[in-house]
């Protein structure tokens, strides 16, 4: 290697190191900006998840981690009738387990609130006073869920409740009962309340999606000869479909995290004999009510996370 070559090589090295310096500066800048956010995210999100994930494999003496027990907590939780009650499920008798109840919420609540929201949004779209109507329907969603739970208690009260009074007026006295305390129907009574609240949310999203549709598209379809039903299926529905994904997923997340309404109506037991307990209630009870079973609380919370996280991720990554 000649001297010239060595000098050239040195030059290239220097160039490289300059580049590297520049990159390092950028990296430092990036880090400075990222650290505050990442710290909070780490302490309050990642930390607890990792802690629970590890903790779910250990035995606990109240809040003190003891020895490694492998899948013991998991097996114990998943076979617990409070989480999934197989024999009651076969007889369709409540309680069927918190996970089952949560899934029931998903199956009933999510489609109902989605369609009701779409229906109301369509109904209000061309109505005079639609802003007032929308605000009234959406008001339910702005109320804290724990208050909704209390309101439901009043509505379903056997003596003072509006709902039972309505039944009496309609001459259906035999149906009058304390709805939130009757195991076989209580969960549906609560789901109905949940639908009322959440319809406001889906209606709002659909309303904004509908108002984003160019009115000349609808008029064009009219001129093309499409009736109201065709206009809905061929033009409106395809254009609000992306919103439907958001509404459905947000709905699933909302009911999977359900706690307040159930707690207000049925306390920490989730109704008489856990008749409408949900996963959130089970986490709370396992963690904070004697006999404290911290391992189980962690397992149930992780189950909730496994269901909700992919959905949340999907929403976050939608264009």
């Amino acid at each position: 290697m000649s001297l010239q070559d060595r000098i050239d090589a040195l030059d290239t090295d220097r160039d490289l190191s300059v580049d590297f310096d520049f990159d390092r500066e950028k990296a430092v800048a990036l880090a400075v900006f990222l650290i505050p956010g990442l710290t909070l995210f780490g302490i309050f999100s990642v930390g607890p998840i990792v802690y629970s994930a590890i903790g779910s494999f250990f035995a606990w003496d109240t809040f003190t981690m003891e020895h490694f027990v492998g899948l013991d907590n998991w097996i114990r939780s998943l076979t617990d009738p409070l989480i999934v009650h197989w024999s009651n499920m076969q007889e369709f008798r409540y309680p069927m387990g918190a996970l089952t109840h949560n899934l029931l919420w998903v199956v009933v609540h999510v489609p109902a609130s989605t369609f009701l929201g779409l229906g109301l949004a369509l109904l209000f779209a061309d109505l005079k006073g639609r802003r007032i109507l929308r605000s009234m329907v959406f008001a339910g969603f702005t109320v804290p869920p724990i208050v909704i739970g209390l309101v439901l208690m009043f509505i379903y009260d056997p003596q003072a409740g509006v709902f039972n009074e309505l039944l009496r007026v309609l001459g259906q006295d035999h149906l009058v009962r304390n709805w939130t305390q009757s195991p076989q129907v209580a969960i549906y009574a609560l789901i109905a309340g949940g639908i009322w609240v959440h319809t406001g949310f889906s209606m709002l999203l659909y309303s904004s999606a509908l108002s984003a549709i160019d009115p000349s598209l609808i008029e064009s379809a009219k001129v093309d000869g499409a009736g109201p039903w065709r206009r809905f299926w061929d033009v409106i529905w395809p254009l609000v479909k992306p919103v439907t994904a958001v509404v459905v997923i947000m709905g699933i997340i909302w009911v999977m995290r359900m706690f307040d309404i159930v707690y207000a109506a049925g306390g920490a037991a989730g109704g008489p004999n856990h008749a409408y307990s949900v996963l959130g209630i089970e986490v709370y009870r396992a963690a904070f009510r004697p006999e404290i079973d911290y391992g189980m609380a962690m397992v149930v919370a992780l189950i909730q996370l496994f269901i909700v996280a992919p959905l949340a991720l999907y929403i976050a990554r939608m264009r």
Binding site: S216, A221, V223, D234, P238
Partner: peptide, 16 residues
Amino acid sequence: PSDRNVAMVFQNYALY
């Protein structure tokens, strides 16, 4: 409009 057998082109084209 559909009973009148008219066709219309809109200012913004109104393509679906």
